[in-house]
Design a protein around this nucleic acid. Structure first.
Length: 487
RNA sequence: GCCCCCGUCGUCUAGCGGCCUAGGACGUCGCCCUCUCACGGCGGUAACGCCGGUUCAAAUCCGGUCGGGGGUACCA
C-alpha cells in the first residue's frame, strides 16, 4: 500500500467547531496508526467569509489539543504553501488543462435561465441542465457579444459513479442525478469543487476522511479525479470515508449557536485536551466493548477507520465532563497544579509571577483539591480562601445565611474557644479538639457541627477538608475568621 | 419533489447468524462511605422503529415501510 497521507482542511470561518476537532482527531489517529503523514491545509478560497481570527484560532486549537501536523502552516513541507489563498497559480494551471480538454465546457447561463428551463421541462433534478454542453461557435460568439463571461463546468459522465466508502461501504450515484457543476466563478476565481480535489491530488492525499455533509459532492470528485488522472495531474484516486455528524440538542447538527459547539471554550472552561479528545473519539468509535477512558497513544494503537460508526452522534456535555473528570484523576497532583496555574493567575488567586510563599502554599494545598475538581477552572473557587488577604476575605452571603444563623454562631464560638489555646496547630489536633468540643459535648451530627466552622473559615459551604485547611491557614488567620463570623 | 446517508437503553456505544432472557459508559433513582464537596463501592431503571422474507436459528442477512438527517449553488 502507498504511504498513508491524510489531511485536515478547514475553512477559517467563525469559531472552530467541535465537529472539526473530531474530524481532525480521526484523521490524525488514522495517520499515526498507519505511520503516515498528517497534512494540515487551510481552505480559504472564500474571501468573503474567511477571517484571520478564525485562522489563528484553528492553529491555537490544534496546538492546545496536541494534534501535531507533519505538513502545513508554520511547519511547511514539500507541497507548500498550505493556504489555498497562496496557491492560485496552481489552480489556474489545473483549470487551463481541464478547460483545454473535453472534460469541461464553458457555460454562459445564469440562474434565472436555468430555473426557467427547468420549470418548462418539468425536470425533477434541481441543478444545471447541461444547456451549454454543445454550444456552437456562433452561440459562443453571441454570448460573448452580450458581454457574458463563462463559468467552467465539469461534464459529468453518463452512467453511474461509485466508490467503496471507508465507513459506509459501497455507495453509488446515477450521474443523471448529479448535474454538471462549476469549477470556477465567471470572474475566474476557483471554487471548492476544483480547489479541494486538485489540492488533494497535488498533495498526494491517499485517504479523504471528512464529514458526512460532503458525501453528495463525492461523485463529482470521483468523476473529476478520472479527468485529473487522464490529464496527468495525478495518478490515483484517494479512498473516501464519510464521518457521521456531531449533533446537538434535538435532531439538528450542532450549530455555531450552541455553546457546546465552540472548541476553544473547552480550554477556557478548564477541560483537559485529553479529556475532550477522548470524549470526541467516542462519538462514532469505541476502543473496546467495556472501556470509555483511554489515552491518545492507546487510540493511535487501536484506531481503525473501518470501525467507525456511520450514524450521527449527539453531543452530551455531561458525559464529556465525566470523561474529562476521569482524565483529571489520571494526572499527578504536580501536573494538575501546573495546568491549573493559568486559571489561578487569571482569577487573581496567585500573582503572576507566583510569589515563593504562594508557590509553597499551593504545593501543600493542591493535594487537597486535585481529586475533588473535575475541571481546571474549578481550582480558583476551591483555593481562593487560602490565598486571600484577611481584609478582602468574606463569606459567601448565601452560604452565610444558611450556616451562620444563631445556632451556627454558637458552634463557631465553641470552636473558637476550643482552639484558642491549642498546641500544636496541626490537622490532627484541630480535629480532636473540634470533635470533642462540638460533637461530643454539644451533641449534633458532625455535618451539622462542622458546617458553620467551614463557612466561617473557608467562606463557602463547599471547601477542601476543613481541618487540613485550617492547618494551612494557620492559627491566627483561622481564629481571626472565626472571631469575625461572630461579629 | 428528486438523490444520498442513517435507524440497539434518555445519550454515546458493544454486537458483525447460535456465546444476547442484548454487555459497558454517561445520566437518572436508591443505598453505603463521609467534616462539606468530590472520589469510591453496591444495587435498580431503561433499547434491537415496524412488517415481511431467508435460515434449524436474526439485533445481526435481504426486501419493503415508517422515521430522522443531508444534498439539490458561480458556499464549503
Amino acid at each position: 500500500m502507498r504511504n498513508v497521507r491524510v489531511r485536515m482542511a478547514p475553512s477559517p470561518t467563525g469559531s472552530p467547531h467541535v465537529g472539526l476537532v473530531r474530524t481532525a482527531l480521526y484523521n490524525w489517529a488514522f495517520a499515526r496508526h498507519h505511520g503516515g503523514t498528517f497534512v494540515f491545509r487551510i481552505e480559504d478560497t472564500d474571501t468573503a467569509r474567511n477571517t484571520e481570527e478564525s485562522y489563528t484560532a484553528i492553529l491555537e486549537l490544534m496546538r492546545w489539543l496536541g494534534l501535531d501536523w507533519d505538513e502545513g502552516p508554520e511547519v511547511g513541507g514539500p507541497h507548500a504553501p498550505y493556504r489555498q489563498s497562496e496557491r492560485s497559480d496552481l489552480y489556474a494551471e489545473a483549470l487551463d488543462k481541464l478547460r483545454a480538454s473535453s472534460y469541461t465546457y464553458d457555460c454562459y447561463c445564469n440562474n434565472d435561465e436555468v430555473d426557467a428551463r427547468r420549470k418548462a421541462s418539468g425536470s425533477k433534478v434541481m441543478g444545471y441542465d447541461g444547456f451549454c454542453r454543445e454550444l456552437t461557435a456562433d452561440q459562443v460568439a453571441a454570448f460573448e457579444g452580450q458581454g457574458r463571461k463563462p463559468v467552467v463546468r465539469f461534464r459529468m459522465p453518463d452512467g453511474s459513479v461509485s466508490w467503496d466508502d471507508l465507513v459506509r461501504g459501497e455507495i453509488t450515484f446515477e450521474t443523471e442525478f448529479v448535474p454538471d457543476y462549476a469549477l470556477c466563478r465567471a470572474n475566474g476565481e476557483p471554487l471548492y469543487t476544483l480547489v479541494n480535489p486538485v489540492d488533494d491530488a497535488l498533495m498526494e492525499i491517499t485517504h479523504v476522511l471528512r464529514g458526512e455533509d460532503l458525501l453528495s459532492s463525492t461523485p463529482r470528485q470521483v468523476a473529476l479525479y478520472a479527468a485529473l488522472i487522464d490529464l496527468g495531474i495525478t495518478d490515483f484516486t484517494p479512498q473516501f470515508g464519510h464521518l457521521p455528524y456531531v449533533m446537538g440538542e434535538g435532531n439538528k447538527k450542532l450549530s455555531k449557536r450552541d455553546p457546546e459547539a465552540h472548541a476553544l471554550a473547552y480550554r477556557d472552561n478548564g477541560f483537559l485536551p485529553e479529556g475532550l479528545l477522548n470524549y470526541l473519539a467516542l462519538l462514532g468509535w469505541a476502543i473496546a466493548a467495556d472501556r470509555d477512558v483511554f489515552t491518545l497513544a492507546e487510540m493511535v494503537e487501536k484506531f481503525e477507520i473501518g470501525d467507525v460508526n456511520a450514524n450521527p452522534a449527539r453531543f452530551d456535555l455531561k458525559k464529556c465532563e465525566a470523561i474529562n473528570a476521569s482524565h483529571m484523576r489520571l494526572l499527578s497532583v504536580e501536573d494538575i497544579t501546573h495546568r491549573a496555574l493559568p486559571f489561578l493567575k487569571a482569577a487573581g488567586v496567585v500573582g503572576d509571577p507566583v510569589h515563593d510563599a504562594d508557590a509553597q502554599l499551593l504545593e501543600l494545598a493542591m493535594p487537597l483539591v486535585a481529586e475533588r475538581i473535575n475541571k481546571l477552572a474549578e481550582a480558583p473557587d476551591m483555593l481562593g480562601f487560602l490565598f486571600v488577604d484577611e481584609e478582602s476575605f468574606s463569606v459567601d452571603p448565601a452560604d452565610a445565611e444558611k450556616l451562620l444563623d444563631e445556632a451556627g454562631k454558637g458552634v463557631v464560638k465553641a470552636a473558637h474557644d476550643a482552639l484558642v489555646d491549642l498546641h500544636p496547630w496541626s490537622t490532627d489536633a484541630i480535629q480532636t479538639a473540634l470533635q470533642a468540643a462540638l460533637v461530643d459535648d454539644l451533641g449534633p451530627k458532625p455535618r451539622v457541627a462542622f458546617g458553620p466552622v467551614r463557612g466561617a473559615v473557608s467562606g463557602r459551604r463547599v471547601s477542601p477538608p476543613l481541618f487540613e485547611s485550617m492547618e494551612l491557614l494557620g492559627r491566627d488567620r483561622s481564629l481571626g475568621r472565626l472571631q469575625r463570623a461572630l461579629g
